[in-house]
Amino acid sequence: MDSETNNSRLPRRTVLQWFAAAAAAGEASALQGFAQSAAPATTGYGTDPNMAKIYNPGDVWPLTFSKAEKNAAVALADVILPADDLGPAASTVRVPDYLDEWISAPYPKQQKDREAVLPGLKWIDEESNSRFQKSFADLSLTEQQTICDDLCREKQPDPEWRKAAAFFHSFSTICIGAYFGTPEGWKAIGYVGNTPSGIFTGPPQEVLDELGLEQTVKD
C-alpha cells in the first residue's frame, strides 16, 4: 500500500527534532559516564497499544543515543548495509533510529542488547582513535572496513575483542531486522507481497520449473 509506505517516511522536521533531542540527551549522558547504559526508567507500549497507527522511533519511549553514539551508529550501520545495486544505505532507511529505539526499549531482550551496543559504540570510537586518531564516523571506508574485518575474524583470543565481536554481531543483527523490514529492504532481499489481489495463482511457472515442482492444486 503505497500511501501507508509513504507515511512511514519521516517528515524532515521530525528528523531535525530528533537530532536536537539526541544532542540534548548527549549532553546529559556525557555527565553520567558509564551509567548511561543503565536501564531507562520507562514502561513499554502496554498490552493494548493503538494498532490503527503507524509508529516512529521515539513515539513510545525516549531514545538514548548521544550525538557521538549516533554518529558511530550511522557510520557502522552504513558499513554493514551500504548503498549498492541491491539497495540504499542503512542510514537512509532509518536503521540508526531503529537501533536507538531498540536499545532504549524497556524489555529484557532489548535491555540485553543495550548492554552490548552502548559500550560497543564507545569502544569502536576508542579503537578508531587509537589506530587512526579519528572517531569511527570520520574514518575512510577502508579504515572502517579494517576494523570490521578484525571484528569479523572467527577466532578472537583477546577477551576485549571477543566482547567487541559480540557487540558487532548484536549490532549487525538489529540492523538486518530493521533494514529488511523496509520496502527498500524487501526489494533487496526479494520479498514480494503485502498487496491485495483478487486471485492467488501460486508460484509462477518459471519458479516451479526452476525447482522441478508441479502445482498439485488444480483449478
Binding site: V79, D85, L86, S172, T173, F180
Partner: peptide
C-alpha cells in the same frame, strides 16, 4: 518467504561475520 522485519529474516549463523554487499547477497 514471509514479510521480513523485526527479527533477522535469515538465522544469525548464516550471516555471522559478514558485512557490506556480501552480507546483502547472502541474506538474499
Amino acid at each position: 518467504r514471509k514479510m521480513p522485519g523485526g527479527n533477522s529474516p535469515v538465522p544469525g549463523n548464516y550471516l555471522k561475520g559478514l558485512y557490506g554487499t556480501k552480507l546483502k547477497e547472502e541474506a538474499r
